[in-house]
Design a protein around this nucleic acid. Sequence first.
DNA 1: ACCTTAATGAAAATGATTTTCATTAACAAT
DNA 2: ATTGTTAATGAAAATCATTTTCATTAAGGT
Lengths: 154, 154
Amino acid sequence: MNGKNNPEWHRNFRQRGLRITEPRKAILEVLNNTTEHLSAEEIYTEVHKTYPNIGLTTVYRNLELLEEMGIIAKFHFGDGRSRYELIQSPQKPGHHHHLICTGCKQIIDYDDFVDEEIELLNKVEQALSAAHNFQITGHTIQFYGICNSCRGNL
Amino acid sequence: MNGKNNPEWHRNFRQRGLRITEPRKAILEVLNNTTEHLSAEEIYTEVHKTYPNIGLTTVYRNLELLEEMGIIAKFHFGDGRSRYELIQSPQKPGHHHHLICTGCKQIIDYDDFVDEEIELLNKVEQALSAAHNFQITGHTIQFYGICNSCRGNL
DNA sequence: ACCTTAATGAAAATGATTTTCATTAACAAT
DNA sequence: ATTGTTAATGAAAATCATTTTCATTAAGGT
């Protein structure tokens, strides 16, 4: 059901003594096949189609797990719910950032200038590490705005 | 009680037909005198000391209002509650970004490299505006990491 | 001092996420 | 293949931040 990359996370899980379960397979399956930034409930709804027994709690629990394993990233786009994205998605560009329409809430992945952004981020990261004695683990860059069609609706 | 900058927001409010009320004065007073990034409840608690009649609802309502008036900014630092900061704070550097410790949740305002960051952000902003036909209204840059003492606690 | 109505506060409602707990099912050992 | 251990699950209840409702209060123009 989800091709050759199975072994990868299987091994990853087993090393930690974690089990390969149907809900886990189904959740990763959904994440693997979307270009969107799904919320827990949206993932639940999607998984539910092929695995009707799934519980929303299980989705939450596994998203938390996957996040701390570094397999998915959790985002806050200002709509009051967390959204999740596979860090290595077959459906997406590599390192990208997000552009959010505050009107219709659509989220656009962009990677124009990301190289430059990352270069600067690295520089800032080093400066901050040194100045504040932090071990930097991640960053967030987002742009907010109003898309073309939402502007029309004003 | 809060010096010479009163007239400023008073005028601002009155122009919109909004009233100058005790709760509003008290909330702005608190925001004016902190270097922290307070949540609604923290603001409520603080205001409550000098104005015990304040309601949490009123705090939320006014924070929303102040945000849409462009007087305060609302942030999400990943601890599940919104946090607020005066955009022009007498207690803070001008345009700054945030460094968050995921251990103890402390938030550090930094402005090293902010000029460079902003320069790049402007460039990206223009590119994104053009490419996606967006009218960009804001951005978020944050770094996450683990501070020195939290690293010790691991 | 009076009126109009914006603003408030308390309580209830909502919505996302977490916790609890009894049941189920992975999978290591047999 | 069968079994035993215990990680994982699902349902229901609990929690927590935020929003809504609605009757009351108080700004501030008259």
